[in-house]
């Protein structure tokens, strides 16, 4: 009980909440990207994968609920901490220069909020079908029964350059968010010792870049007509 109090009420404890929820969301982003990259293996692969997820509610729902909880923890804690941080300096300096801070670190809250907005948009787009309502209606035959044609949905969706542009911009901000966030989570958990400091910073930047490239590959390939 005391441990929980320390974790959820103290300044440092809430950094662990940020770090652990962030780490798990980071792993999800990687998994999500790998799943989607199956688009390059062909229509059947991607649709089979999507169907497998849909047809396995014992996997899908815990994952969805888990992600929701993680996202809420991450966002609520971030906002709480940010409000406290503002309060800790009621009167700002003349000309706010933040010394020795990377751009990614300074923009972490902004990039996070944009990513949040993007997640909502992304869910409305591909999960709830509110952006392009026809997207959820495509079907394709799989093992003798009709299933949702995710491949077609993606191709159709990203063929719209405006939508692709939104995705690309948001992936850029996600990349920025992760390039500080991933190295920061090691620091928050106390694993970023001097021996690994540079390696961790590199890992964060490289993994953020891979996620950016991987995710952007899809809309770019579709726009260029490489995936039809």
């Amino acid at each position: 009980m005391k441990t929980l109090k320390l974790i959820f009420l103290s300044s440092l404890g809430r950094k662990y909440v940020m770090a652990i929820s962030g780490a798990l969301l980071f792993l999800f982003v990687i998994g999500h990207m790998l799943g989607n990259l199956q688009i390059f293996l062909g229509k059947d692969f991607l649709n089979a994968y999507a169907h497998f997820l849909k047809a396995t509610p014992e996997l899908l729902w815990p994952a969805r609920i888990g992600l929701l909880v993680l996202a809420i923890l991450h966002i609520v804690t971030a906002v709480q901490l940010a409000i406290e941080n503002r309060r800790a300096r009621p009167l700002a300096y003349d000309g706010t220069k933040i010394y020795a801070a990377s751009f990614a670190a300074q923009a972490i809250l902004f990039s996070g909020l944009v990513v949040l907005a993007f997640i909502v948009y992304h869910l409305l787009h591909f999960t709830f079908g509110k952006i392009q309502p026809e997207a959820l209606t495509y079907t394709v035959m799989y093992k003798g029964e009709p299933i949702h044609d995710v491949y077609k949905m993606m191709v159709m969706g990203f063929s719209n350059p405006w939508i692709s542009a939104i995705y690309l911009i948001c992936m850029g901000l996600l990349c920025l968010h992760l390039s500080h966030g991933v190295s920061s989570l090691f620091q928050s958990l106390g694993w970023k010792t001097n021996a690994y400091r540079n390696a961790i910073d590199k890992f964060a930047k490289i993994s953020a870049l891979i996620i950016f490239l991987g995710n952007c590959a899809i809309p770019v390939a579709i726009l260029l007509g490489l995936v039809k």
Partner: peptide, 28 residues
């Protein structure tokens, strides 16, 4: 006081150059 966001301005201005490693250690 506010909360640490692992930016490193503190170490950069520290007259005694106390490093970020100690913050990591505190977290641990």
């Amino acid at each position: 006081f506010g909360n640490c966001t692992n930016i490193g301005s503190c170490s950069a201005v520290c007259p005694k150059e106390i490093g970020q490693d100690f913050i990591s250690r505190l977290n641990r």
